[in-house]
Structures are given as structure tokens and as C-alpha cells.
Computed example of a mutant assay.
Amino acid sequence: MTEIKHHLTDALLMAYSAGSMPEAFSLVVATHISMCDDCRARMGSFDAVGGELLMEAGAAEMTAGSLDAVMRMIAGEEPEPLLEKSHDNVEYLFPEPLRNYVDCSPDDIKWKKVGGGVSQLVLPTKGEGTVRLLNIPGGVAVPDHGHRGTELTLVLQGAFSDEVDRFGVGDIEVANEDFDHQPIAAPGVACICLAATDAPLRFSGLLPKIAQKFVGI
């Protein structure tokens, strides 16, 4: 099993535990947690603290009709259980949290080219932020860029390197406004990443700036 060296920060884990994180970022965090024993254990600690705080908060006041409303729901028909999607005989790259958004193999994805050989698939989420799958061919460099907000990048296949370090499968890179870099995919298999942003990237080159208007990165 691949050793994961780059993990989520405590601040991100606490925000996820508290349910205060946008769906786009929650998807990246949940996917990383499903791959990382270390962050999953730390997540359990934050959940335990949150549970203690709820216990100490005391009971919430109920409206006069609350009990009747609950009893009517109990007396009514139970909703049909959700059917689990079948993954038989398909080699999946994507961990379970991500399969609810991409229920197919990477070969079946309808990638959209964004320039320089890089392709993407924007995933449908609600609220602030955008999350996408990125497909970067081996040896290809993403244009040099900075950030106007936060970016979480989780490696699902292959690897990439930048000014910070090398990031392999399961590693997550957290970037902010003070961070400029140029990720380069490792030679060989394509690097597939799950990336969430809450603001457009800040590209240095003219061509990426022009393309940005059309691809929405």
C-alpha cells in the first residue's frame, strides 16, 4: 500500500467534522479520509470532541407541534431504500465517496480538454466552490499559477511534483493566496487528481489567462 506523506490540516478536519465546509471541499476531504488511516483516526478524535460539546449544550426547545409531526411521519409510509450502485467487474480508481459523483472507470469519463494536454471533468456540487477531476499526462506541466483562495488537490493516480514536494497517490496539497507553483506530472501513467477551489486561479502566462475564461479554472 502506498505511504501517504501529505495530510489534511487540523483546521480542515475540524471544519469537516463540524459540517461547515462547502460540498466541493467536503468531497475532497472525505475522499482523502477514505484513503488515509492517519487522517481517519484524527477525524474520529474531532468527532468525539464534537459529540461531547453537543452533550453539554443541553436539550433544544421544541415547538408545540413537533411531537405530532414526528408521529405523523412514523405512521406514514417509509421511504424506499436507496439502491446501491453496482461496481461489479469494473476496475475503479475512485474511492467510495467519489463514486457517488463519478460512477464509471476513468476510461469512460468524457474529459474536456483545457489546454497543454490537460483535461478535466467538473463535478456537480452545491454551494460555494468548484471541484473537478484533472487528467495530466505523464511528464506534462500545469501552467505556473497562484491562488486567489484555497485549493485542495488530492492525487488519485500517478504523481506530481512542484516547488513544495512530490505528491503521490493519497497525498493532498493545500494551497492558499500566498502559494505559487507549477505542478509537473511524473513520467509514465497520467496523473489524475481531485481538486477543489473556492476562487479562480491566478495564472502567470497570457495563454492560460485567455483559456481560463472558457474552462472556468
Rank of each mutant, 00 (worst) to 15 (best):
V142R: 00
L13V: 06
F94T: 08
L27Q: 03
P106E: 05
A186G: 06
A69Y: 01
A199N: 11
L152Y: 02
L121C: 07
E78D: 14
M35F: 05
N89E: 08
P137M: 07
P183D: 08
P106H: 06
Y101N: 05
M14D: 12
E151Y: 01
G44N: 10
S26G: 13
S105K: 11
H6G: 03
E91L: 11
L12D: 11
R40G: 02
L53N: 05
L206Q: 11
H6A: 10
G158V: 03
P187A: 11
L123P: 13
V164W: 03
A195C: 13
T125N: 11
I172W: 00
M43E: 06
S20P: 00
F167Y: 15
L154G: 04
P106M: 04
M73V: 09
D171C: 10
M62I: 05
D198N: 14
T197G: 08
R72H: 07
A199V: 01
D38G: 03
F167M: 06
E77A: 14
D88A: 15
S105E: 12
S105I: 11
Q157D: 07
V174K: 00
A175N: 06
G168K: 00
S17K: 00
R148K: 10
G44A: 11
I109C: 10
S86G: 12
K85D: 00
A186N: 09
G138F: 10
M71S: 09
K213P: 10
E173R: 10
T63Y: 03
V114E: 03
P22F: 02
L12Q: 13
S26A: 15
G168S: 13
H145M: 10
P124K: 15
V215N: 13
V215R: 01
E91M: 08
T31S: 15
L54R: 14
M35R: 08
A195H: 01
D171K: 08
L27A: 02
F46R: 02
R42W: 03
L152H: 03
H7Y: 11
L98Y: 01
D165K: 15
A11Y: 04
T153E: 14
R132G: 03
A60C: 09
T2G: 00
H181C: 07
M35D: 01
F203N: 03
D108N: 12
P187K: 04
T125E: 07
G50E: 09
G170L: 06
V155R: 00
G138E: 13
R72F: 01
Y16W: 13
E3P: 13
A186Q: 13
A64V: 06
V189A: 14
C39M: 08
